[in-house]
Computed example of a mutant assay.
Amino acid sequence: MEVTTLARRATWTGGAVQERLRRLNLITTVPPLAIVGVLLVVLTARTWWHVVLQVIGLIAALATAERWTAGDFIRVARPCVAITAAVWLAGALNDDSSSFYGLCVVGSFTIPPLPRHRIAALLGLAVLVAALGASNPLFFHDYGVGRLLQYVVIPAVSVVVSTAFTFVSQRLYDLVAELEQSRDREAELAVIRERMRFASDLHDIQGHTLHVVKLKVALAEKLLVGDVDRARQELREVHTLVGDTIVQTKELAYAQRRLNLSAELENAKNLFEAAGIHVRVDREAEVDARAGELLGQVLRETTTNILRHAQAEQVRITLTESGISIVNDGAQEGGLPELNGLSTLRQRLADDGGELKVEQQDGRFLTAAAFPRREDVR
């Protein structure tokens, strides 16, 4: 349930954030462009033909801007470039210097998202704007500085400047999008970690129980010949153990499982004695509540490992206020065995500020887990 909730939350959050970013871009981009376009129509259009040309260019510019905020502008940008280029040429031939506005806006949105050759594309667009604007002095046979500035220099420079501003906005948008993708990946990692934790806990429950059941059934089989009552008692304990495991599995599935360290100590003691292992428990202090559950998991995992992998005759368990240590003899010769359950627990303890130590020397195996004491933390 927790894993599913995390996955749904990550998906929903990612989509919601993307939609908020789009709305923000829409609000901060389209209205200012529309206001500037309308002001140009009101202030510079001298004929109805000028009004028609500027309105067509403005519509194409706003359509491109709206699609740009949605991340789907390529199919709109290309025809809009052609339309606004035609509008600028018609405006230049009709002595309307404001008709370049649409091409300036469309070009500034089209170039920054290009994967490569953006500088070359920008220079090409500036040259195109200048060339189309140059048709005005050629058509009117007036090569004065005023017309060249009005129809060639100013439009070309405006395209470069507006594209630069759009490029900065695009980079900011990309950075925010990357940040959101990073957050989505973190959410996915959280889901994976939760699955691993669930699998580890399930392994602790089922693996531990199955091994104990195997041990008790073998013991009961031996006792059937000479001690039937003791065999019945072992089988009843197996039945109780299986029932407890079913309950613990349900609690794990609904995130309600909590280990009781005292119960785990008693359980470990009974298991070792049933296996013919002498066990000594030194309880020097009550364990801090925040550490009890993880220490119980360490004790359970270590008990299972001893029963599975060691030929132990003696086990000593020492409990302090903030830690536990389990020492057993009968460890196999050679290097440290690979104990995946303890490796997982080491990481979980480290995440909670604790430390797990595993050592093997002279046939003795030590597993020790500890948390900082309260006065040490202060």
Score class of each variant (00 low, 15 high):
residue 213 V to Y: 04
residue 217 V to N: 02
residue 221 E to Y: 06
residue 222 K to N: 12
residue 222 K to I: 03
residue 222 K to S: 13
residue 225 V to P: 01
residue 226 G to P: 03
residue 230 R to G: 09
residue 233 Q to L: 12
residue 235 L to R: 05
residue 235 L to T: 02
residue 236 R to Q: 15
residue 237 E to Y: 12
residue 244 D to K: 11
residue 248 Q to W: 03
residue 249 T to R: 04
residue 256 Q to C: 07
residue 261 L to F: 14
residue 261 L to I: 11
residue 263 A to K: 00
residue 263 A to M: 04
residue 267 N to H: 13
residue 267 N to E: 14
residue 274 A to K: 13
residue 275 A to I: 05
residue 276 G to I: 06
residue 276 G to S: 10
residue 280 R to M: 13
residue 281 V to H: 06
residue 285 A to I: 06
residue 286 E to K: 07
residue 286 E to W: 03
residue 287 V to M: 00
residue 290 R to A: 14
residue 291 A to M: 03
residue 292 G to Y: 02
residue 293 E to Y: 01
residue 299 L to E: 03
residue 299 L to A: 08
residue 301 E to R: 05
residue 302 T to W: 03
residue 302 T to V: 09
residue 302 T to G: 06
residue 309 H to I: 02
residue 310 A to I: 10
residue 311 Q to P: 00
residue 313 E to L: 10
residue 313 E to R: 15
residue 314 Q to M: 11
residue 318 T to L: 07
residue 319 L to H: 04
residue 320 T to D: 05
residue 323 G to W: 04
residue 324 I to T: 07
residue 328 N to H: 14
residue 328 N to Y: 06
residue 328 N to L: 08
residue 329 D to W: 08
residue 330 G to H: 09
residue 335 G to C: 04
residue 336 L to T: 01
residue 339 L to T: 01
residue 341 G to Y: 05
residue 344 T to W: 00
residue 351 D to H: 04
residue 351 D to I: 10
residue 351 D to A: 13
residue 352 D to W: 00
residue 352 D to K: 09
residue 354 G to D: 03
residue 355 E to G: 02
